[in-house]
């Protein structure tokens, strides 16, 4: 089975996001793999382990640092890694989806996996857009995939613990909410070894534009309308204040 995983390298939200003009200052933030892509890589490798095939991971190299992420994916069980060398840190989802769709088209995939969402999906997620550009169906919010020749059974999650089971004809694009198992761990030694030996295929981005059509007015932290009353002091003092509060409200 020909399995493709489309990934997104996104600004890390572990730290504050600096602003330049009316957008994030992409030159001064760290980029990390979208957390849902870790789930989708795991799901892809699980399908390969169940039915055989190859897993190709493909992403847009926005800042010239995608190799680290691709090496990690290879160490976790992906077979091939491809990057679209764009060098455009602020490329939106539409543009990335367009480039990725063009890269994926020639791979004749049976299943394309993508993370269900990313925190910077201002203009929507790449998964449904890749599906639209490739004229394939899309199903997202998926938490399990059992593939067979030409078909798959997928479980899609809804709110409140509800889910639905769907039968799909391949090829299809699947937005992964969570893999059935926690993403596997790749030891640093293995990632280093992969980094020394792996070949990453490079694809130049086509000139074909697909702008999001959004005029950015402003990017700023939320205007705070309310804020928690903060307990200060040492951890012990904080604990004492919380316990006192709970006791005063009859909750402890």
């Amino acid at each position: 089975m020909n399995i493709v995983v489309a990934i997104k390298h996104i600004p890390s939200i572990a730290d504050d996001l600096p602003v330049k003009g009316n957008n994030v200052d992409f030159d001064s933030v760290d980029f990390v793999l979208n957390e849902f892509d870790e789930q989708s890589i795991e799901q892809a490798v699980l399908v390969k382990e169940a039915v055989g095939g190859t897993v190709t991971v493909v992403g847009v190299d926005l800042i010239g640092e995608l190799d680290n992420v691709l090496h990690l994916a290879l160490a976790k069980g992906a077979d091939k890694a491809v990057k679209v060398t764009a060098d455009e840190p602020g490329a939106d989802s539409h543009q990335q989806a367009k480039w990725l769709a063009e890269a994926i088209k020639g791979m004749s995939p049976d299943i394309v996996f993508a993370g269900v969402q990313a925190s910077n999906d201002l203009d929507g997620q790449i998964g449904p857009m890749i599906a639209a550009y490739l004229d394939m169906p899309y199903i997202g919010g998926v938490s399990s995939v059992e593939a067979a020749e030409g078909t798959a059974i997928v479980t899609k999650e809804f709110a409140g613990g509800n889910a639905g089971k769907y039968s799909v004809s391949l090829p299809i694009v699947v937005g992964v909410q969570a893999a059935p198992k926690p993403p596997r761990y790749a030891p640093v030694s293995k990632v280093r070894q992969v980094a020394q030996t792996a070949t990453i295929e490079k694809i130049s981005p086509s000139a074909d534009g697909a702008g999001a059509g959004l005029s950015m007015k402003k990017m700023a932290p939320p205007v705070v309308t309310g804020h928690a009353e903060m307990f200060t002091g040492s951890s012990k003092e904080v604990a004492a204040k919380i316990v006192e509060l709970l006791k005063s409200k009859g909750l402890a």
């Binding site: 959004l214 950015m216 990017m219 932290p221």
Partner: peptide
Amino acid sequence: VYGGKMIAEV
């Protein structure tokens, strides 16, 4: 966006 850390006005 960004996990609730930023508001984009578009």
